[in-house]
Design a protein around this nucleic acid. Structure first.
Lengths: 143, 143
DNA sequence: TTTGATGCAAAGTATTTGCAGACTG
DNA sequence: CAGTCTGCAAATACTTTGCATCAAA
């Protein structure tokens, strides 16, 4: 799905829900679905104030929450380092996170349903989402 | 490994490193390697002040950091809800985390080395650790 | 006796919230 | 126009840190 289609898709979801489509929201959504960098809220903010100066960090957080609620972005909760967001592939998939430079790379493998089903079956657990994150050193930092 | 052996093991590791073995540390270590509840720092503190009243929350955090550094406990970083700790099985393994009551249950499956190797191989990533957490509703909350 | 550990309180940091005014639909 | 959204600043909550004092070895 290209960026424009995805943007239109999200905009219609918002309209359906009765949410308003403001310039700030469009700028934030564009930034987050475009970036390959798994940006933080702060980086998203720094990125968009260049072209949309009247956007506050608080609004970035509010819009992120909105996008999470409609399952259009994935939050990668790194704890003390804050959260990073994946707006390109909103379905859970593994990430490789560099402990040195902080780079986050997507992995191609994203179907863990059989493994998760097996784990859940044993205990009557009802699965809603998951995260599979691998920490280490990326190829560049390894050198 | 029973609790006493594990406690002795950790104490010798600390001595080797030149760390001191204080009553506070012993109380914290006992609490954390005994609990099945994946306790938070605050819960560990609340637990031990009953028997070891002269232990501050700051010391709990400092000791947790120490135990993480020597790889004797596992941190489960839940972001806004703070961290929980697994002192019984310090090697990475999947957890099932209830979105309703917060219960964290260990899964038996803990060898993902082949999957992780495969993911890492594609990109030259050097794996140091991982987390595999499944979110949903536990059997009780499902009802 | 030496030096690392402790407790306290203050600082730190990512995120959330309350509110008055602005803007979408 | 009604009601939502925005920016600002204050509030939150978990965790860390500085420092004077204490105690393990």
């Amino acid at each position: 799905m290209d960026i424009q289609k995805r943007l239109d898709h999200i905009i219609s979801l918002l309209k359906e829900r009765g949410n308003r489509v403001t310039p700030q929201r469009i700028a934030i959504i564009k930034a987050i679905i475009t970036s390959e960098a798994h940006p933080s809220a702060d980086l998203i903010h720094k990125t968009i104030i260049k072209t949309s100066p009247t956007t506050s960090l608080a609004t970035v957080y509010k819009t992120i929450k909105l996008l999470k609620d409609i399952n259009e972005i994935l939050e990668l909760d790194l704890g003390e380092e804050g959260s990073r967001y994946d707006g390109r592939r909103p379905h859970p998939h593994p990430h490789m996170i560099c402990n040195s430079c902080g780079e986050i790379r997507d992995s191609e493998m994203d179907d863990f349903s059989s493994i998760i089903d097996e784990l859940a079956k044993q205990s009557g657990f009802h699965v809603q989402s998951h995260r599979f994150d691998i920490f280490g050193l990326c190829a560049s930092c390894r050198k």
